[in-house]
Design a protein around this nucleic acid. Structure first.
Length: 114
DNA sequence: GGGCTGACTGACG
DNA sequence: ACGTCAGCCAGCC
């Protein structure tokens, strides 16, 4: 049985991995897709120790900015990676309005604009 | 088993 | 627009 007992972290990694290149998602969005809409902090905790293959740099906060972490170097790295993928930074922040990953991928009912 | 922390978010002044 | 306070969840000591 089991199998479904995957830790929330694993689910988060899976969702983050689904983020297409050139797009970004917010912690809250990832959390919601991972099944824990009330725990955006858990997403951050997971990113803190994310394995390879997980585009952690595509995850930003609801403000479209890079969250302040203990090590500032990481912030710069994230910004560089995003720009490299084609994500423009405006005023030090990403225009979620146009570059936010729709999430789910399918838009049948879409438009869930928060 | 209990308690604290945290790469967050939303509301309020 | 900015700073502050409280809420919520999972992981770790």
């Amino acid at each position: 049985m089991a199998a479904r007992a995957l830790d929330a972290r694993v689910r988060i990694y899976r969702v983050v991995r689904r983020i297409p290149r050139g797009r970004v998602a917010t912690y809250g969005q990832i959390a919601a897709l991972a099944g824990i809409p009330r725990a955006p902090r858990v997403v951050g905790a997971a990113m803190r120790d994310c394995p390879a293959g997980v585009p952690w740099h595509r995850v930003v906060n609801a403000q479209g900015r890079i969250s302040p972490r203990r090590r500032m170097s990481g912030m710069l790295t994230q910004r560089i990676l995003l720009v490299q993928e084609g994500v423009p930074f405006r005023g030090g922040r990403v225009p979620l309005r146009t570059h936010r990953w729709p999430g789910g991928g399918d838009v049948s009912c879409g438009s869930r604009s928060r």
